[in-house]
Deep mutational scan, measured.
Amino acid sequence: MIVFVRFNSSHGFPVEVDSDTSIFQLKEVVAKRQGVPADQLRVIFAGKELRNDWTVQNCDLDQQSIVHIVQRPWRKGQEMNATGGDDPRNAAGGCEREPQSLTRVDLSSSVLPGDSVGLAVILHTDSRKDSPPAGSPAGRSIYNSFYVYCKGPCQRVQPGKLRVQCSTCRQATLTLTQGPSCWDDVLIPNRMSGECQSPHCPGTSAEFFFKCGAHPTSDKETSVALHLIATNSRNITCITCTDVRSPVLVFQCNSRHVICLDCFHLYCVTRLNDRQFVHDPQLGYSLPCVAGCPNSLIKELHHFRILGEEQYNRYQQYGAEECVLQMGGVLCPRPGCGAGLLPEPDQRKVTCEGGNGLGCGFAFCRECKEAYHEGECSAVFEASGTTTQAYRVDERAAEQARWEAASKETIKKTTKPCPRCHVPVEKNGGCMHMKCPQPQCRLEWCWNCGCEWNRVCMGDHWFDV
C-alpha cells in the first residue's frame, strides 16, 4: 500500500509500505531520502505521535493516508518512550493509558441525555464484534464512529474520518494533550489543546475536521460531520418502519427517538411537499423529531443533505422563500418566477423588478396576487391545505425507538455506581478489583462488596467470576 509523507509540512511524497511495516522502518526510509538522522524524526498522525514499535496496521493507516513527519531533536526523557523501550505506560498493571487514536474515538455516547454525564468515556458498548469485510486488514473493525456528507465523488452519507490540525499553522502536526470525549470537544473551536510539532510553531489549540472515509482524499478535501447519525450498535428499532437498520439518525429530543435514513428521507420529502418545515429565527429551515417532541429541531442543517441534490435544492429554495415571508415580504405569483420581494408595508401595487435578471417585471396586487387592478379585489380565496398535519407515529413504536432507553438498560445490566462519587462504572470481565475512572475520584473498590478495596476482598473473592 501507499502512504503519503509530508516532511516538515512540505509537499508530500509517496512511500510504499506493508501492513506489518513498523513506524521506525518508515522513519528509516524517510531519513534516507531526506539525509537526516532517523532518531530525530517524529511521525504524527490523527493528533498522535506514533511509536517506533507500532506497525502501519496498528495505527489504522489506510491506503493513501497522509502522515506528517517532522525533524525535531529529542528532548530529555522522550527518546526512550518513542523507541518502544522502557515506557512506564506499558508496564503490566499500570494505570496510565495511551491517548486514544482519533481513528478509534467514539462519540456516540454523547447523544445520551444530559443526566448521563461521564458515560462518553466510561461506558463502552460490546456491539462492535462484526466481522471485518472481505479485503480489510485482519482485526480491523467495521464499526463506524462518525458519518459525514461527502460532496465529492460519493454525493451521499458516508463513514467519516476525524482529523485534527494546529489552529495556528493549519498543519496536521499537532499532538493532542488528551483525546475528545464528546461532540462539544470536536465542534467547539479551541476547546481542546495540544502541542504543535512543526518547527518554530508555538500553536497549542486544536482544530478538528472530518474527511470522507470511503475514498482517498487530499489535504484540502473536508466534509461536514453529521453528528446525529450513528451506527445502530444498540439495535434500536426505527420509529417509523420498526426495522432494525444501521446507520440511524438520533433526534435530540428527551427520548432520543431513532429513525433509519430511508424513513428520514421520506419524512423530509413529505414535509417538504406540504411546505411544513419549521422556520426558526436562529436555526433556519428545519424539522423536529418525527414524533413531534418539543425542543427537538435539527440544529445542523447539513443533515438535510440526505435528501439528495434535487430535493436539497428545493429545500434551500423553500427556506429562502419562507425567510422572505417571515420578513413581511411577498413572492411573485407569476408561474416560473417566484422571486422574493420586500415592498413597503402599505404598498398595494407590487412590481417584480426586472433588474439584474432576477425579476420578471410582472405587476400584481398584494392582496389577491392577481395582475394589478384598481378598486376592490374580486375574490380572495383562503389558501387550502395549509394546516399542519401531524406525522403519524405509532405510540408503541415510539416507545421502542428510544436510544436513551437502550442506554439505561445497558447501564443497569453492566454497571454499578462507584461507592464514593456514584458514577456508573462498567465491568466487562476481569477481577473484582475496580478503579473509578473519574479523575477527581480514582477510588479503588470491590465490585462484589461495593466497598473500598481491602485485604478481605483480596483474599476471599479477588478473582471470582
Rank of each mutant, 00 (worst) to 15 (best):
Ile259Leu: 07
Asp18Asn: 12
Lys27Val: 03
Pro439Arg: 08
Arg234Gln: 10
Asp394Glu: 10
Glu452Leu: 15
Cys212Met: 00
Asp184Glu: 13
Leu26Asn: 01
Pro417Cys: 11
Arg128Glu: 14
Tyr149Lys: 02
Arg156Tyr: 07
Ala390Thr: 13
Arg89Trp: 13
Cys332Asp: 03
Lys369Cys: 07
Gly94Ile: 12
Ser167Lys: 13
Gly93Glu: 14
Glu28Lys: 07
Cys368Asn: 03
Asn8Cys: 02
Phe4Pro: 06
Arg72Trp: 14
Lys435Thr: 15
Thr415Trp: 12
Tyr149Ala: 03
Trp403Asp: 03
Asn235Glu: 09
Ala46Val: 03
Cys253Ser: 00
Asn190Tyr: 08
Gly77Pro: 13
Gln440Ile: 14
Asn232His: 00
Gln252Cys: 07
Arg128Pro: 13
Met432Cys: 05
Lys48Met: 04
Lys48Pro: 00
Gln316Pro: 00
Cys260Ser: 00
Cys212Val: 02
Met327Phe: 07
Tyr315Pro: 00
Thr173His: 09
Cys196Val: 00
Lys211Gly: 11
Leu102Cys: 10
Arg366Pro: 04
Glu207Pro: 00
Thr177Ser: 14
Gln78Thr: 12
Gly429Thr: 15
Glu207Thr: 07
Asn454Leu: 02
Asp460Gln: 15
Ser110Asp: 14
Ser19Lys: 10
Asn90Arg: 11
Gly429Ala: 15
Asp185Ser: 02
Arg170Ser: 10
Val269Lys: 03
Ala92Glu: 15
Asp115Met: 05
Trp54Lys: 07
Val278Asn: 06
Thr386Met: 14
Arg72Ile: 14
Ala134Val: 11
Leu187Ala: 05
Arg170Gly: 14
Phe364Tyr: 05
Glu321His: 06
Gln64Tyr: 13
Phe277Gln: 00
Asp130Ile: 09
Arg51Leu: 13
Gln155Cys: 09
Lys211Met: 13
Ala91Cys: 07
Glu404Asp: 12
His215Asn: 02
Gly152Pro: 01
Glu96Asn: 09
Gln165Glu: 09
Arg305Trp: 06
Leu41Cys: 04
Tyr149Trp: 13
Asn273Asp: 04
Gly336Met: 10
Thr240Ala: 14
Gln100Tyr: 09
Asp185Met: 02
Val269Phe: 02
Cys436Asn: 01
Ala138Asn: 11
Leu283Cys: 09
Gln347Ala: 11
Cys446Ser: 01
Ala138Gly: 11
Arg42Cys: 13
Glu221Asp: 11
Pro133Asp: 11
Arg97Pro: 12
Ser218Gln: 11
Ala401Gln: 03
Gly77Trp: 13
Ala134Tyr: 09
Val290His: 00
Asp280Leu: 12
Arg442Asn: 09
Pro88Cys: 09
Met192Val: 11
Asn295Ile: 03
Phe362Arg: 04
Gln347Leu: 11
Tyr315Val: 13
Arg156His: 08
Ala291Cys: 12
Ser286Asn: 00
Tyr267Met: 05
Ala383Ile: 13
Arg140Lys: 12
Arg33Ala: 06
Gly93Met: 12
Arg191Val: 08
Pro419Cys: 03
Arg33Gly: 04
Cys263Leu: 00
Val70Phe: 04
Glu374Met: 06
Val456Phe: 15
Thr168Gln: 08
Asn8Pro: 01
Asp106Val: 05
Glu395Gly: 08
Cys431Phe: 04
Asp62Ala: 14
Phe304Leu: 05
Leu301Trp: 05
Gly328Glu: 05
Arg396Asp: 14
Gly77His: 12
Asp62Lys: 14
Arg33Gln: 07
Asn428Gln: 15
Ser141Arg: 12
Leu112Val: 14
Val380Pro: 09
Pro88Ser: 10
Ile229Pro: 00
Gln197Leu: 13
Lys412Leu: 11
Arg140Ile: 09
Pro199Met: 07
Tyr372Glu: 07
Gly152Lys: 12
Val117Cys: 14
Glu382Leu: 14
His461Met: 01
Ala379Asn: 12
Ser19Gly: 13
Val67Tyr: 02
Val278Thr: 09
Leu187Val: 07
Pro216Gly: 10
Thr222His: 11
Thr168Cys: 07
Val465Leu: 15
Phe463Leu: 02
Met432Gln: 05
Cys241Ile: 00
Arg256Ser: 07
Leu297Ala: 05
Val330Gln: 07
Gln400Tyr: 11
Gly340Phe: 05
Leu26Pro: 01
Asp60Leu: 08
Gly94Pro: 07
Gly361Gln: 07
Ser246Ile: 00
Leu325Glu: 04
Val393Ala: 07
Gln276Val: 07
Thr55Asp: 03
Ile298Asp: 01
Gly194Trp: 02
Leu287Met: 02
Arg334Asn: 07
Pro202Leu: 10
Arg420Phe: 15
Asn58His: 12
Cys293Ser: 00
Thr177Ala: 14
His279Val: 06
Gly118Gln: 10
Ser22Tyr: 09
Cys293Ile: 02
Glu452Phe: 15
Gln178Leu: 06
Asp53Tyr: 04
Pro159Ala: 08
Lys48Ser: 04
Glu367Thr: 11
Lys435Trp: 05
Tyr149Glu: 02
Arg348Ser: 06
Ile259Gly: 01
Leu443Phe: 09
Ser181Glu: 12
Val43Arg: 01
Leu176Pro: 07
Trp54Cys: 09
Gln40Cys: 07
Gln326Leu: 08
Gly12Asn: 05
Thr410Asp: 14
Trp453Glu: 02
Thr351Asp: 08
Lys76Leu: 15
Phe381Val: 07
Pro159Val: 08
Pro199Gln: 09
Gln400Val: 15
Arg89Val: 13
Gly430Asp: 12
Ser296Asn: 02
Val224Asn: 09
Ala383Asp: 10
Glu310Asp: 11
Gly375Pro: 04
Cys154Arg: 01
Pro439Val: 15
Gln400Phe: 13
Val393His: 06
Gly213Thr: 09
Gly429Met: 10
Lys27Met: 02
Gly385Cys: 07
Ser246Val: 02
Val186Met: 02
Arg191Ala: 09
Ile229Ala: 03
Gly361Trp: 08
Ala371Val: 10
